[in-house]
């Protein structure tokens, strides 16, 4: 009996060690980013890596935040952060609102051609973005939307195959008895969706919201193509300004800015971690 307990304990220890080891591997680039952000420029790219800065330059974060103010007359980091938040809000709202309705229809309603439509929706995932880039650019140009935020957020209000698939999988797990009972009580589909299905799907909605937030927050290509005024740039696009073609890169400031750019995503993940992992587990997304 004791030997069995020892075996279990040994297994647990082994698993923990493996997990800790893997976490360190994943934390490696992040630690490098944070520590580089705190280094003087001289120590930024040393080989072998000099992990601990000789002096912790907390001022790098301030310098990164006010970088470019002299030539542009405004604080680009602050302006780009505001622009990114505005865009992310619209994209997340659009993604959650549109995909949940479509997914509900695919999961809970019966209508002719539903499965075919779902198949076609999924097939759109196979088309890579660069293929669609020119036609969509032409479309937005025709609508005279180039130079505005509309090409970046309006599409999110028209559903995306991945989120639809994810939510549909989740909605299908909600017992039909629940909604049937509501129907017998005279509830409309909209009411069932809003008062029964949505409150039960918080975890899945959180996953969709977080994925779309991360995609919008980190998007580089979209803002690069569609925006025409530097004042309207987003954070991911703004990071380019920390390097010059023929004058060297301020790696410490670039990393300080990058750290500030990814901080909200990390904070958000920690706050929604439980919901998020629950959602991933329930929707069957885990590998």
């Amino acid at each position: 009996m004791q030997s069995q307990q020892k075996l279990i304990l040994a297994r647990k220890v082994l698993i923990q060690i493996t997990l800790i080891g893997l976490s360190i591997v994943f934390l490696f680039p992040f630690a490098w980013l944070i520590l580089t952000a705190l280094k003087p420029i001289k120590e930024t790219m040393t080989v072998p890596i000099k992990w601990i800065p000789s002096k912790f330059m907390w001022g790098n974060f301030y310098d990164a935040a006010v970088y470019g103010h002299d030539s542009l007359g405004y604080y680009p980091f602050v302006v780009y952060a505001r622009n990114t938040i505005v865009l992310c809000t619209l994209i997340v709202a659009g993604t959650v609102a549109s995909n949940s309705v479509v997914a509900y229809s695919f999961a809970r309603l019966r209508w002719p051609g539903r499965d075919l439509a779902f198949g076609i929706t999924l097939a759109t995932m196979m088309v890579p973005f660069p293929v669609l880039m020119v036609p969509t650019f032409a479309l937005f140009r025709h609508l005279e939307w180039i130079g505005t935020y509309r090409p970046l957020w309006v599409p999110s209000w028209f559903g995306s195959a991945f989120s639809i698939f994810l939510l549909r999988q989740f909605f299908r797990t909600i017992p039909f008895e629940l909604t049937e009972a509501a129907k017998l009580d005279g509830a409309s589909e909209w009411r069932i969706f809003r008062t029964i299905v949505l409150p039960l799907s918080k975890a899945a909605l959180a996953v969709v919201a977080l994925f779309s937030f991360m995609a919008a927050w980190n998007d580089f290509l979209g803002p690069l193509i569609y925006l025409l005024d530097q004042k309207n740039f987003t954070l991911s696009l703004g990071l380019q300004f920390y390097q010059s073609q023929n004058g060297g890169t301020s790696w410490n400031l670039l990393m300080a800015a990058s750290a500030m750019v990814i901080a909200p995503v990390i904070v958000l993940f920690f706050f929604t971690q439980r919901l998020f992992i629950q959602g991933i587990a329930i929707t069957g997304l885990k590998g």
Binding site: N83, V86, Y149, Q243
Partner: peptide, 26 residues
Amino acid sequence: SEQLTKAPPPDKKVHVQYWEKWTDFE
């Protein structure tokens, strides 16, 4: 978002759009 990307009120000048690859001191 619409306010942020709103075109400035038209002036009498012709606006020439110039795109450059340079950043920083360049």
